[in-house]
Design a protein around this nucleic acid. Structure first.
Lengths: 348, 348
DNA sequence: ATTAGCACTCTCATGATGAGAGTGCTAATA
DNA sequence: TATTAGCACTCTCATCATGAGAGTGCTAAT
């Protein structure tokens, strides 16, 4: 990003301040900077520069006579000037180990996509102490594999929809009680022969088009198929995996109850999370929202690091970490990136 | 319960103290008791009695010169001498309203048992401000309705198990790749004809018995059926609906962070909850665990109010409220009882 | 342009103080 | 004999003053 108006020295110091604050969580003073990083400047010089950075809105002071704390803008600078995420972070060996284990565990439960996502969110939050979030593949982006209908008690029908990705959706519908199992089988057979390999939302349009083109014999069948199919795929809402509130509580950032309340309120309502992650769903690579950059009101003083996992380069779902604005961005980005790749790999 | 060694007057005062503390959440003093409840005694008399109750372990003092606070034993006395739960609590009209609405909502989503339980836990926690918990019907207590197998990608098979109660369980299994869909159909057909109406755990034994009795032709089929059936029903763990941490945080009881941490740690691990609720799973009517009566270490300073919901008088699962020991027991008991009945009703 | 020096400001931990609430005990009362 | 009034005592909590410590901004010297 263009921060052209900052000279090299200011950048160095800003970077140093943010980094120190992230690891210490205490306002950092001029003296500390000179002691820890041996630039050639004296505390007084650093003080002057920090005052400038303050004026420019990168830093701020909790009170007149405290050290400096980064603003959201300051964090933004820091994140943008972070070295590439494939440059390994210090504690990388440990994390590599962890991720290696995770990969193995995922291999084993790959067939059960639900437990896979559960495992991923848990690992994310445990490793990072932030809140781990994963959205399962969006129903409309998944690929049809097979559908079946089973009569069940009275006028009920159980629908089982299998997708290529291994997502199983089942629903109990009420249908016209004159439908026999025969009818249902015919509809299923029809759908299975026509739809294999298409994405779930292509299919609906496809069917409608077909309904117009085909001869009258099929007409009724297709109409029925469309109707029942629509019900089967309708989104049942609230499909997000979230975990890590407890882990996050242990961070010193959240030593005040009000803050914890704020967060739990935000993550309690999965709609909010869903709305947030929607923002990421088409972007490539890791993206970061810092504090008030956040499009969602409830998360204005938290940060989000997110990426998508993909199947053959089509984005399927989002994986993210939500943490304090004072987050270890380097680490978080590395984790999200790695695990997103890891999930993508299991899809191929 | 036998508290024979307490005379009538002591009981009255103990009851009054507990009740006051529950509603005020502040240590209650002798003067307050005399003012609020007009027994004929002076503060001094009450003081003497309270000192006795203290000696007997029903009350305790936070510090020398504060009012009294109930101990777990004190709460136990209170709960045991509570009037019957069908005696209506004061705010009953409001709650009746709420429960009426809940019943209606449940009617609508009855076919989808998962959303039903979600709805119940949410309602429980919102109404009570405690943590609402519901366990779905224990797999081994549910009744077989139908099973189906669908081949899926390579050596995978998707199993769909329907129960009378409307619980759908699906699993992706790996099977011997020589199994054709034909084989699977035969197995399913066999199971469906034999098992209808039996409970899930009866069936396993039944099959094994059959395997001994029948002629050799069936032998292989039954063996296969047993094997695949076992895999299909195996418990995937962690099936508990929990909600209300946020609501509970707003209670003054949890103004300290450490307490919130304690709780979230306890409810994070669903095994703990499961273990706890197991204690209730066969009992009839509402039961209450107060503080250290609790069999689970992690919940030693919380209370649990629980009951079972039933189908034709067979207990299916547990519904509970977890809250501070200073809980509005009267209200909680009423709620749990009513909602348990309400769920039971939807099963008939 | 940089830096040393210094006065200044603000926080935070500490301790003193006093009001308030409630107790336990004793002596008076019915 | 059981109850109660009275009173000294204890403990908490909010408030205030104090001073050390950390870090700043500004000025004058390098």
């Amino acid at each position: 990003m263009v921060m052209g108006f900052l000279d090299e020295r200011s950048k160095q110091i800003l970077y140093a301040v943010v980094q120190s604050y992230i690891s210490k969580l205490e306002p950092v003073g001029s003296k500390f900077v000179t002691r820890k990083y041996s630039f050639g400047f004296s505390p007084a010089t650093v003080r002057n520069i920090m005052a400038d950075l303050d004026d420019l809105g990168f830093l701020s002071q909790p009170h007149t006579s405290a050290g400096r704390v980064p603003t959201d803008k300051g964090y933004r600078f820091y994140v943008d000037s972070l070295p590439d995420s494939n440059v390994i972070s210090e504690d990388n060996e440990l994390m590599g180990e962890f991720i290696c284990q995770l990969t193995k565990r995922l291999e084993n439960i790959r067939s059960d996509i639900n437990s896979m996502f559960l495992e991923v969110t848990n690992s994310l939050s445990m490793m990072s102490n932030y809140i781990g979030v994963v959205t399962p593949p969006k129903p409309e982006k998944t690929t049809f594999n097979r559908i079946d209908f089973i009569r069940y008690k009275g006028d009920k029908v159980v629908t089982i929809l299998l997708t290529e990705e291994g997502v199983i959706k089942n629903k109990i519908l009420s249908v016209d009680s004159r439908f026999t199992q025969e009818d249902l089988n015919r509809i299923a057979e029809y759908l299975n022969s026509e739809c294999l390999g298409h994405t779930i939302d292509e299919i609906k349009n496809m069917l409608i088009k077909k309904a117009h083109g085909e001869k009258a014999v099929w007409d009724k069948l297709i109409a029925r198929a469309i109707k029942i199919y629509e019900q089967a795929i309708s989104f049942s809402g609230d499909d997000v995996y979230v975990s890590g509130l407890y882990e996050m509580m242990n961070l010193p950032d959240f030593s005040e109850i009000s803050k914890i309340r704020e967060i739990s309120r935000a993550i309690k309502d999965k709609h909010i999370i869903l709305k947030l992650l929607d923002e990421f769903s088409d972007s490539k690579g890791v993206r970061v929202f810092i504090g008030n950059e956040n499009p969602v009101e409830e998360l204005k003083n938290l940060s989000v690091v997110a990426s998508t996992y993909r199947e053959k380069d089509r984005p399927m779902g989002v994986i993210a970490l939500i943490g304090p604005t004072r987050m270890d961005y380097s680490r978080a980005i590395y984790m999200v990136d790695t695990i997103a790749r890891c999930i993508s790999r299991t899809f191929d």
